[in-house]
Write a protein that binds this DNA or RNA. Structure first.
Lengths: 193, 193
DNA sequence: CTTAAAAGTCAACATGTGTTGACTTCACCT
DNA sequence: AGGTGAAGTCAACACATGTTGACTTTTAAG
């Protein structure tokens, strides 16, 4: 029993080490940019072990990008403060060092990786739309789409392009600027101010 | 004289053919995804000719992504209709078959290509900010940043991720939904509705 | 201590990349 | 018509990639 446990825990530890290294490098360089050799070197371990553990680079990527948006952390339903909550939650996904970076990796890889796109669509359908539906099920898909348009564009400018006014702005300013827009989209959002 | 002209026009024609093919493939697959061989095959021409004409793949990419946003087409200054105008103009950049696709290519390649990011920042500084400054020079950088956050996010969802509610929506709906937000950002945009 | 399996290393493979240089073909001016 | 330089082809290079199989080392039970 103990025997089995120890053996498992050894391999499980390197498995987690590989996953952690993979996530960091996929985050920094995307699917194509991060090579198996680089990931292995950062662990450090032989590149062939990565294949032994995960079967292929593609499978490693799939295992490294299991995304849970953790909307259940919102607890009792927010209601009219949803805009601020959503954007704070979204910023955490990128700025928390120990976050799993899953969504960030997918977004960075989405331009040239069909699997990343598919996963983002799944997350949208299975996690974002249900949340927005709780506010009002009418046209929830459209409103959810408007929200992620703004959030993804913000992430693109702030974290990927590093466009100076957006990337240099303190977090609180971002919340104050985009929170009301998200709120507006969340509750309907077809008319102007 | 004629001699020179004819010779130039021959090489100039294939040069343009290469550029056109390169733009299409860079647009579809990004910088890394589009190979010199693929671009050459689509012309069709030998891959080595591309190096002869442009020196390197990197230089070909640079030449293929000279972007002019053509804001001068706006003519007399729009003023309070700038939101609708901007988003229509932006949609044209992606949907016009004979547009140069420059910005679209840059955006698609930006995740893993520093040169693409640099060019986008230049376009932002040299073309977008000046336009927004014409409305009001106060905080023009910040307001321009907010606008491109929304526009780039829209492009990401509609054309790259193909996120179904946003990608399936008719063009006019997009204008009606996002136009007011852009307008709001353009004229100040810190307060809610 | 022995030993069998797990964990890890090493060198090589097949393939695809950008790029190069030697060669051939073509267009055009004298 | 013939020769000259441009335009284009061909095969190969050096290198990097994911992946594989043979091998060695470590681990822990008998």
């Amino acid at each position: 029993m103990e025997i089995q446990k120890r053996r498992e825990s050894k391999s499980a530890r390197t498995r987690r080490a590989i996953l952690s290294s993979a996530r960091r490098l996929f985050f920094e360089r995307g699917y194509d940019g991060a090579t198996v050799r680089q990931i292995a070197e950062a662990v450090p371990i032989d590149p062939s072990m990565i294949i032994r553990y995960f079967g292929s680079k593609e499978q490693l990527f799939a295992d490294a990008t299991v995304v849970d948006l953790r909307f259940q952390d919102f607890g009792p339903f927010p209601g009219d403060d949803i805009g601020r909550l959503l954007i704070e939650h979204f910023l955490d996904l990128w700025e928390n060092e120990d976050g799993d970076l899953g969504l960030a990796i997918l977004l960075r890889s989405s331009a040239h990786n069909e699997e990343a796109r598919t996963k983002i669509r799944e997350i949208f359908a299975q996690q974002v739309i249900p949340l927005i539906s709780r506010i009002d099920p009418l046209d929830a898909e459209r409103r959810a789409g408007m929200i992620v348009s703004q959030l993804f564009g913000l992430a693109l400018c702030r974290y990927i392009l590093e466009l100076s006014p957006i990337s240099a702005m303190p977090r609180d300013d971002i919340v104050q600027i985009f929170g009301p827009t998200i709120q507006h989209y969340a509750v309907g959002g077809t008319s102007t101010a």
